[in-house]
Amino acid sequence: MKKSAALPIALICLGAVWFLKSTALLPSTSTLLALLLLIAGVLLGLLDGLNKSTLVSCPLLIYAGVAIYLRDNMGLHLSHLLSLGMVLAGLLMLLSRSDRIPERSARWRSLPDQQDLR
Rank of each mutant, 00 (worst) to 15 (best):
M1S: 11
M1T: 07
K2P: 11
K2H: 13
K2W: 10
S4V: 06
S4T: 12
A5E: 07
L7P: 01
P8D: 05
P8S: 07
A10D: 05
L11M: 09
I12F: 14
I12L: 14
I12H: 06
C13Q: 09
L14C: 10
L14H: 03
L14V: 10
L14Q: 01
L14W: 04
G15P: 03
G15C: 13
A16S: 10
A16L: 11
A16I: 12
V17G: 01
W18G: 04
W18P: 00
F19T: 08
F19M: 05
F19P: 00
T23I: 08
T23S: 14
L25H: 02
L25R: 07
L26H: 02
P27I: 08
S28T: 06
T29V: 09
S30M: 11
T31C: 03
T31D: 02
T31G: 00
L32K: 01
L33H: 03
A34H: 00
L35K: 02
L36E: 05
L37N: 03
L38T: 11
L38N: 01
I39Y: 00
A40D: 06
A40K: 02
G41M: 01
L43A: 02
L44M: 13
G45W: 05
G45A: 13
L46D: 10
L47A: 11
L47M: 09
D48A: 15
D48P: 05
G49H: 08
G49L: 05
G49S: 08
L50W: 15
L50V: 15
N51A: 12
K52R: 15
K52S: 06
S53W: 15
T54S: 14
L55S: 06
V56H: 03
V56W: 01
S57D: 07
S57P: 00
C58A: 13
L60T: 12
L60V: 14
I62K: 00
I62N: 00
Y63L: 13
Y63R: 05
A64I: 11
A64D: 08
G65K: 01
G65L: 03
V66E: 08
A67G: 08
A67R: 02
I68P: 03
Y69A: 13
Y69K: 03
N73A: 12
M74Q: 11
M74H: 09
G75T: 00
G75F: 10
H77T: 07
L78V: 12
S79G: 13
S79P: 11
S79T: 14
S79H: 13
H80N: 12
L81R: 06
L82T: 09
L82C: 06
S83P: 08
L84A: 15
G85V: 12
G85L: 09
G85F: 11
M86C: 14
L88A: 15
A89V: 01
G90N: 10
G90E: 14
L92Y: 05
L92V: 08
L92K: 05
M93Y: 02
M93L: 12
L94H: 03
L94Q: 04
L94F: 07
R97D: 06
R97S: 09
R97M: 14
R97N: 07
S98A: 15
D99K: 15
D99N: 14
R100F: 08
R100L: 13
R100W: 13
I101M: 04
P102M: 07
E103S: 12
S105E: 13
S105C: 10
S105M: 12
A106E: 14
R107D: 15
R107C: 14
R107I: 14
W108A: 06
W108L: 14
R109P: 00
Q114I: 09
L117R: 10
L117D: 04
R118Q: 10
R118P: 01
